[in-house]
């Protein structure tokens, strides 16, 4: 793997690891899965394939961000706006 791609992959791993610390099912749950996912693709050499995998990782980051945001919003809404029906928000 060329140096540039390598550092991008490492940064992606670091970012996912950092975000996993707050995962609802626990950091361990997330981190073991994260490691497994990266190890599974450790032999990928083709730069195009690596790009694709990085893009998938970035997509996962976005999804987790959205998950955290929604979780926070919902729990706040539950505690501070108890009478509202879900349909009214949007």
């Amino acid at each position: 793997m060329s140096g540039k791609l390598r550092s991008r992959v490492i940064n992606l791993y670091k970012q996912l690891h950092y975000m996993g610390k707050e995962y609802p099912k626990g950091a361990d749950f997330f981190h073991t899965r994260l490691k497994k996912a990266f190890l599974k693709n450790k032999d990928v050499e083709d730069p195009k394939a690596i790009e694709k995998l990085i893009a998938r990782g970035e997509y996962v980051i976005k999804e987790i961000e959205a998950l955290y945001m929604l979780r926070k919003y919902r729990s706040l809404k539950k505690s501070y706006y108890p009478d509202e029906k879900p349909a009214q928000t949007s």
Partner: peptide, 8 residues
């Protein structure tokens, strides 16, 4: 909707 403070 607040943004997430990313690692970088």
């Amino acid at each position: 909707q607040p943004r997430y403070a990313t690692l970088p």
